[in-house]
Amino acid sequence: MARFQLTVNGRDVEVDVDPGTPVLWVLRDHLQLVGTKYGCGIARCGACTIHLNGVAVRSCVLPVSSVGEQAITTIEGLSADGTHPLQQAWLEHDVPQCGYCQAGQIMSAAALLARNPSPSDEEIDAAMNGNLCRCGTYLRIRAAIRTAAARG
């Protein structure tokens, strides 16, 4: 076990865990931030997507010891009150079915729009291809990203 100082959603926190513990489980089991989901544990489904200094990463394979001073943002911290343009677009398009993958989808989309405010459909597909949706809401996700992008 070892102590790690982390910045999560703008808040400084300290956890005492095994250095190999993936950030996913630090968030879920130690910080009670459960919006970030476990889906595969091998970075192949995207349900666990968070931002590390604004870049989308899969937290299920990210050891807590490798985070250092980089800022972690989770779905709970994407906006203070659920008003991020993507969250609003998701509601307008009524995207979710089961909903389990959607936090990861939104985090991947948010990182995309942060670096590319007007992505083409091909760029959306490329950025989002690591995020599985078993319910098949891909068309609505694409539409919601376009809506959010169009608003700038």
């Binding site: 879920r28 931030l33 459960v34 919006g35 970030t36 989901k37 476990y38 989770t74 779905i75 709970e76 659920g82 969250q87 998701w90 509601l91 009524d94 995207v95 979710p96 909903g99 389990y100 959607q102 936090a103 939104i106």
Partner: peptide, 14 residues
């Protein structure tokens, strides 16, 4: 939908 897009605990896993 709002709970889903803001990551609130809805699932048994959470």
């Amino acid at each position: 939908a709002r709970k889903i897009v803001t990551g609130q605990p809805l699932y048994a896993m959470d």
